[in-house]
Computed example of a mutant assay.
Amino acid sequence: MTTVKSDAGRVLVVGGFGAVGATVTAALEDWSPGRAVPAGRSRGVPVDVTDPGGLGRALDGLGDVAAVVLCVEPPDEGAARACVERGVHLVDVNATPRLLDGVAALHDRAVRTGATAVLSVGLAPGLTNLLAARAHEEVGGADRIDLTVLLGTGERHGADAVRWTVRSLAAPPGGARPARFALPGHGTRTAHPFPFSDQYTLRAGLGVPDVTTRLCLDSRALTAALFGARRAGLGRAARHARVRRVLTAALGAVHPGGDGFAVRADAWRGGRHAAHALTGSAQSRVTGLVAAHAVRTALSGALPPGVHHIEGLPALAGLPETLAGEGALALHRPEV
């Protein structure tokens, strides 16, 4: 049996020079100078997550890594397995359901090695999960949860995030329909079903049969154009690699709005209804701060071994208040 590495060890931030990873590295450096080790394909410690053994070799070479923050999307759960097998804690920022399921399957192995892996880390999934859990508890166990996410189109996201958005446009929207919700600071907006991973994991994690996440953008015109094009067949076209490349380049170059975001979680049980919301700016920075706090908490020994989505970890339940206290976001209680 592998034993967990000393929690006094270093933190390897894979993708540490991107928008999210740079925030993780800076936060850890502020809390504990010299502890964060940024890694990337061409800068810092060389790590290529598409190389099946790449992360494992890096961990063995460094020797004193207690935790890894994964800020880039690997092709499979191999990177997570490399951490778990070595008893190294993992905070995974990825949001692709297939990858999250693959990492979740490592739970028993992580328990044996004493490693903690935290999934659903960021804004959505992440803070959406925590708000949903609160609303769920307030109504005494929801039978329906609606999550609404508004993102700013002026923020420049990393390549993985843009590619994920294009892939998600290609996914069938399912049976859910658009809905209108009031979002603090942005008025009442029409949001459209979108395959954020939180809606899938929350169904199992909270035992709620009906969970839907919807998306809108700060630009009403771009929201209407994007989802109108999806209804007209853009989603089907985006299933072709060449079309995805064109769309990825186009979305990466268009920045008509600001960098503000808003998230709202509504839960229903019969006639009971509860809602929580938060607002802020710079989604990538907030995602990085969520990841930084998660790894800091894991290293403190406050999290149990195994693989857990963020809403299943009581020690992280107060993270929205922590971030609000740091000025990274604001919390709201919408009228219901």
Rank of each mutant, 00 (worst) to 15 (best):
234 L>I: 01
271 G>Y: 12
288 G>I: 04
223 T>F: 09
209 P>F: 09
291 A>R: 01
302 A>T: 08
296 R>Y: 05
284 S>P: 03
268 W>V: 09
310 I>W: 04
312 G>C: 08
211 V>T: 11
311 E>Q: 15
284 S>M: 06
231 R>T: 14
301 G>M: 03
273 H>K: 00
253 A>F: 10
232 A>N: 12
207 G>K: 08
298 A>W: 00
262 A>C: 05
218 D>F: 06
212 T>I: 04
206 L>D: 02
292 A>E: 08
307 V>F: 02
253 A>E: 08
279 T>P: 02
266 D>H: 14
233 G>H: 07
240 H>I: 13
270 G>K: 06
240 H>S: 13
215 L>E: 08
310 I>D: 04
309 H>D: 11
256 P>K: 07
288 G>L: 03
236 R>F: 03
227 F>Y: 06
280 G>P: 03
249 A>T: 11
267 A>Y: 00
231 R>P: 08
262 A>G: 07
296 R>C: 05
240 H>Q: 12
265 A>V: 01
270 G>L: 08
300 S>T: 14
222 L>W: 13
271 G>N: 15
208 V>G: 10
277 A>H: 04
239 R>Q: 13
220 R>W: 14
201 T>H: 15
263 V>S: 00
230 R>Q: 10
288 G>H: 01
282 A>D: 13
311 E>A: 15
251 L>Q: 07
284 S>I: 04
259 D>G: 14
252 G>R: 12
251 L>F: 14
303 L>Y: 03
225 A>N: 11
267 A>Q: 03
244 R>S: 08
236 R>V: 12
305 P>H: 01
203 R>I: 11
241 A>K: 10
207 G>C: 13
255 H>V: 10
271 G>R: 13
218 D>A: 10
291 A>K: 04
229 A>Y: 11
272 R>G: 04
315 A>L: 05
261 F>H: 08
260 G>F: 07
226 L>F: 07
315 A>Y: 07
315 A>C: 05
234 L>Y: 14
301 G>W: 01
229 A>I: 09
210 D>K: 11
269 R>L: 11
223 T>H: 08
272 R>W: 02
218 D>L: 12
285 R>H: 15
282 A>W: 10
242 R>Q: 12
291 A>E: 06
201 T>D: 15
301 G>P: 09
316 L>D: 01
285 R>L: 13
225 A>F: 04
299 L>A: 00
274 A>Q: 02
226 L>H: 03
231 R>G: 13
309 H>A: 11
219 S>W: 11
259 D>W: 10
206 L>Q: 10
265 A>E: 05
295 V>C: 03
217 L>G: 09
261 F>C: 02
290 V>Y: 01
224 A>S: 14
292 A>Y: 02
229 A>F: 09
236 R>K: 14
310 I>S: 12
227 F>V: 10
272 R>M: 06
216 C>V: 13
284 S>L: 04
212 T>W: 09
270 G>T: 02
217 L>I: 15
265 A>Q: 04
225 A>W: 04
305 P>D: 05
308 H>L: 04
255 H>D: 09
265 A>Y: 03
279 T>G: 00
252 G>F: 04
231 R>V: 14
287 T>W: 01
208 V>F: 14
255 H>Y: 06
212 T>V: 15
205 G>H: 14
274 A>M: 02
308 H>Q: 02
258 G>F: 01
245 R>L: 12
311 E>M: 12
246 V>G: 05
238 A>V: 09
225 A>H: 06
250 A>H: 12
283 Q>H: 14
